[in-house]
Design a binder for these strands. Structure first.
Lengths: 343, 343
DNA sequence: CAGGTCGAGTTATACGAATAACCAAACTTA
DNA sequence: TAAGTTTGGTTATTCGTATAACTCGACCTG
């Protein structure tokens, strides 16, 4: 069957159904329920079907002033190994409200970012989700001043827009408390950044660790604390380092999963094995790693999807700026065992 | 300075510059170079600047008939741990041609896919990149029949649209030849799917392995071939299994990186270590894994970004359908050593 | 049966930008 | 100096849809 090359318009549908273009619009948008006779509706819908009509989103947006699009700007989220879930959550949530996502990864290039914002403004996005690959404090570009913006997996330095980010402190608290609950009292921590660093992840996780200990009445032994940089090798080195201290830990809270992996290896190198010789809890729930370690790593999950959903909700609600820490929950696998009762 | 709440239009710019709307359009689009006096141009551009004018993409597209958008439909790419690179490559390439990406992950839900296609047709995308999370044969939805489509990281069963996918066979050949080049002749292979499976990855990688061996005049010993399912555990079990054979391999080509990880562990469990006791080559270059193994895993990279770029190029060129295998190149790390010369 | 209401539409216009067609003055050129 | 050309714009129209405002006949209702 020969088809017109370009998509048909409402006028063509109207002609085929023997009505006016306005009627087609009324039928398709269900306005004024009883304004159109049932028989006419059917004729219109048949014509729509037969011609394969599909409304032109541009015309619709132009006329209505609503674009139905939400911008998603990220440094490297869409291509990052784990945080693509931010995009996933945003998309799902946006979709539910009838919106679509216009996403751009800027790779931290200012020109690309500027161009992306420009483009989004051209498309009259209803709001922008500004996502970071890792939890940090960001400066929202001034060019976004005109439109609703929510920062996700990050915190807005100026506090002018809402931020949605993981509750690192609570996560660290949860992890540590889990170990305490298993009977451990000598719990080492290997943090993922130096003491003078200002990244929220390391600061929060450590603070949570400390709170859990003090709430449980366990004295903090500085010899059990180490500072690495979040890489496997540091996990390895610092775990061995902890073993050289006089009074060894029976459990380790690793500041992230890669560090935890290093701890596994260090234990192996010492002829030991988790969780029998030492319990381990990680952080991040990196899904290409945590489930595959042996034993599976008990860790704290970063709530990417929930954060993204929350961000979109905030965007659509357009409230006044708020801070939104999102809970990080524990994922139990096999790396934690009860502390041995001292003989 | 008080700003109008909504974005200014060309009319407002025109008024401020003391010209007609048409002139503003002429200036901004640089048409009829000499048709507008230099002084007028400057006045217009100043007005644009002062008002913060930004062209309305909807009006522009409506008028021109060109949407400037490319659809990206994927099963789970945007949220997958590794293949987000497909999105990255598409975005970059589309961007260079002045297009933007409208991306939707369907999570393999047919209704979501249908809705996504519907939406994209509404937005009059100029073409659709149909991406798969893993290399397989797909059926392109009939609803896409009307618009240019390219399948990426997959092959179109019907062959009606262009396909861009990794050249698995060449990758397997490259991996194996690398081991042969290091002097190995007893090279085991642990494939990632059963012999009767029809996934291109396993079939191609094995075929490449075989070609490399036969080209080098090495006889294929069926005792060196194992079939797993691509998970760590299978790599572990089947490597140990290989070790129980009489004539052990000096190198293993693991069908993917996870399997290779299992091989590392199996060697360890046997008190052995790569590459001294056995060389290992993986496949996938999974970036959260391969660089962090000890020693770093020599593996074959999947060319996600190149595939995506190629797909977008094909889309924009709108040629007749073609098959486009893309080369997978070797990434050398530390898991391959020269074969010991038999004493 | 005049006047009002309701049902089922239609007509006209606006959204913002692109562009074809037109126009007035200034400048050539024979 | 009349006719033609160039310069530097302007006017009018179009893209496809939404919607306010209007119409027209049939149906009450007192």
């Amino acid at each position: 069957m020969a088809r017109k090359s370009s998509t048909p318009t409402m006028w063509e549908v109207a002609e085929r159904a023997g009505v006016s273009q306005a009627t087609v619009s009324l039928v398709l948008n269900n306005v004024g329920g009883s304004r159109v006779a049932e028989a006419t509706k059917v004729r219109v819908l048949d014509a729509v079907e037969e011609l394969g009509f599909r409304t032109n989103a541009f015309a619709k947006s132009l006329r209505s002033g609503k674009s139905g699009m939400i911008g998603f700007i990220s440094d490297e989220v869409a291509s990052a190994p784990f945080a693509g879930k931010l995009l996933k959550g945003s998309q799902l949530c946006a979709w539910e409200a009838g919106n679509v996502i216009l996403s751009v990864d800027t790779f931290n290039e200012p020109e690309l970012e500027a161009a992306a914002i420009d483009m989004m403004l051209s498309y009259r996005v209803q709001g922008v989700v500004y996502a970071s690959m890792y939890h940090r404090v960001v400066d929202v570009p001034a060019a976004l001043a005109g439109i609703p913006t929510v920062v996700v997996n990050a915190q807005d330095r100026a506090g002018l827009v809402s931020s949605v980010f993981p509750d690192e402190e609570l996560g660290g608290y949860t992890a540590t408390k889990h170990l305490i609950g298993a009977g451990h009292t000598r719990i080492g921590m290997i943090n993922i950044q130096p003491p003078d660093s200002d990244l929220p992840a390391g600061i929060g996780r450590l603070a949570g660790y400390r709170r859990a200990l003090s709430e449980a009445g366990i004295e903090q032994d500085p010899r059990l604390l180490r500072y690495g940089s979040g890489i496997v090798e540091d996990g390895f080195d610092l775990t061995r380092d902890l073993w050289n201290e006089g009074d060894r830990p029976t459990a380790i809270f690793a500041g992230n999963d890669r560090t935890a992996w290093g701890s596994y290896r260090a234990l192996e190198s010492l002829g030991l094995h988790a969780p029998d010789d030492c319990s381990i809890v990680g952080f991040d729930n990196q899904d290409t790693l945590a489930p595959y370690l042996d034993p599976g790593l008990t860790t704290v999950a970063l709530p990417y999807e929930q954060m993204a959903r929350r961000a979109v909700e905030l965007l659509l609600a357009a409230e006044t700026p708020t801070q939104n820490p999102i809970e990080c929950s524990l994922v139990r696998r096999g790396s934690v065992a009860s502390a041995k009762v001292p003989a």
